[in-house]
Amino acid sequence: MEPVTLTLMIGVGLAGAIAFIAGIIEDAESDAGSASNPNSQVQLAPQIGHIIRYYDKAIAGEPPQNGLWAAAACTIALVVSWRFLDLGIGQYYAVFFAAVVGAAIVCLVQGCFGVFAHLSRIASFNPFKQPLYWDALLTPLPYSMGLAFLTALLLTLLAFITGGLLGNPFAPPLLALIFGVSLGSIASGTGDIQYGAERLYQHHIFGSGIQISKMGDIDLKGEYGFRNSVDTPYFCMRLGGTITAFAFGLIIFLDGWTRLFTFAGAWTSVILEAIVVIVLFIFLVWLEKFTRNSYGPYPGQEDL
């Protein structure tokens, strides 16, 4: 086997694995801070008379927010890694430790962002008599910051791996921005459904969908005491986080995998990607059929 192919194979495997873990962590981070579309439910709750203890840092869409963390961490990491290289540190160590520095700075920025976002959100609930609970802010804050650190670190490493081992010609900060925005939109589109439609509404019947009239009637009691945002990620990580991870990991892995072959010259990856898209579409149709057969029509609506 040629060494170039071996490097590529290692790069594809490593990139897929890191993307997978980044997917889990990013979904948990958004759930811990109610950062995505389900935040609308957290905001509706005080308006219908529910006093909540959720941490709500949703003042920006999840994709641009996540893209900002990843791009900022990667830019700092790139600059610091040059300095480390000047100091005579080996290049792999330099990149790794620089990534840790970049992610640590971004984690502090995310903490400030979260505090001010939560304060301003709760302040806007003042007409609905929602008090500002410090425990609702200070308990999930370090947790959310830790998850932001891991997300930024993993996306920075992923940017360096795809730039270095897989040979993507973009500069690592741009790659980090691309991954950040993509992962943000994937996590927002897949994993957060479990938070918004199941975790926030566990006292409603499973499979009933969330009617517009029920919106805002979210869970207030947790397994122990009042429900706050620390209670959320461990629940959503089991399915929501894994599904997000699968989606992002599959994209990065399959995109890299199609570049390992050369049977049709430069068009090989295009042909393979088209085949993969068709196969996944067939899976989608099969899953729709499976779901319809498993659950059947909604009770009382069989004849509609």
Binding site: I186, L284, L287
Partner: peptide
């Protein structure tokens, strides 16, 4: 397609 499949 990955996002839609896994969202489903």
């Amino acid at each position: 397609i990955c996002t839609m499949l896994l969202a489903n």
